[in-house]
Design a protein around this nucleic acid. Sequence first.
DNA 1: CGTGCGATGTATCGGTCCGATACATCGCGG
DNA 2: CCGCGATGTATCGGACCGATACATCGCACG
Lengths: 212, 212
Amino acid sequence: MLEFAILGLLQESPMHGYELRKELTAKLGAIRAAISYGSLYPTLRRLQAAGWITEAAETPATAEEVPALTSRRGRVVYKITAEGKERFAQLIAQAGPETYDDTGFGVHFAFFARTDQATRLRILEGRRRKIEERREGLRDVLGRAAERLDAYTLELQRHGLDACEREVRWLEELIANERSGRAPTAPHLGSAGGRREDNSPPPPGETRKERP
Amino acid sequence: MLEFAILGLLQESPMHGYELRKELTAKLGAIRAAISYGSLYPTLRRLQAAGWITEAAETPATAEEVPALTSRRGRVVYKITAEGKERFAQLIAQAGPETYDDTGFGVHFAFFARTDQATRLRILEGRRRKIEERREGLRDVLGRAAERLDAYTLELQRHGLDACEREVRWLEELIANERSGRAPTAPHLGSAGGRREDNSPPPPGETRKERP
DNA sequence: CGTGCGATGTATCGGTCCGATACATCGCGG
DNA sequence: CCGCGATGTATCGGACCGATACATCGCACG
């Protein structure tokens, strides 16, 4: 998961660890708290060992400026390699059942802009099926096993069931949008999903802001 | 987390591993998929080593019946000890910040029937604060950083924000219920939470069924 | 003027938990 | 009678987290 996210992010621009974590947190904030350095740094090393990323020189262009004044501490900037991009594409293409659990789905979804439509559909439908199964399980428990459980546990299941139903509806919209609407990168929704005065979506294109 | 859940479940009745996993899955189905044996068995061993649980004899009372015919394979039944119950109470009393993350909160909530009201309130409020913070983070990203993110990522954040708002409302109800309504074990809700044609809620009372 | 503190930055260690896998028994339907 | 799905125990490698350590930078406050 982390591997996938790092490769995805580094395709937008080279970054060092700290920055990577911040971007990761911003992009995945909806689905997980924050990446721990205890997983980030080891993973970076692993990716580097595999040849999917490399360390990039820190000083961008004006390299002669203040050459070794303060001795240039830390700040290891990583950039993705051609093999890394291949790897990323391969990870998308695989997109197996592990892609449908909460975290896995969220991370893949966050990189849908780099995923072809067929794969997007496959992932969305796989996720929907999985949530539907969870929903059925919860309905079973609430129906058949209700008397065995205390009121708090039941309330928890009800809340969970509600979340499932909501997510299925959300996925339905995304799928419909994806399928017919040919919404290449903009699911738009908003009309049915829940009002939001939006922010004038820039014509779908990339629009990444590089730090100066 | 697993330790807590196991101690909580074993207080209802002794069980062996397989059964424990099933009960755990039923009780926590709303918040996590299924406990892996790869964590369950090592944890059971750890708890046993700490003296919080012990192995119980398999054959209930009529022990002389078919003494060693088929040699009595497998089926290790665990039961909680007095120290184990103490440990469980201590884990509830601590209920620190780690209790407020998704899984931690869910597991603690599932055992609210064994938690005193003051602690329940503390946990619910801690959780609410945490979700409110996440919500603010998402609003920030959707507001300030929106142009840096692609449409899919934004949609993910919107969905996450929606879930946060919903959970805060849910928690508000639970807190109000807990605080004034003196709802000792029955949060009831359902009136304001969202329509549900329901299943004829049994009058709030306890209705705990111990396995005979 | 200095000093301390919050943000930036890299890194490791122990521990929890997962996913895959292996293996054995039981009851039942074909 | 045989296979297959449910029951049941168990291990191993790996992913990820939380705490911790440590060093630098800029700036606000005394």
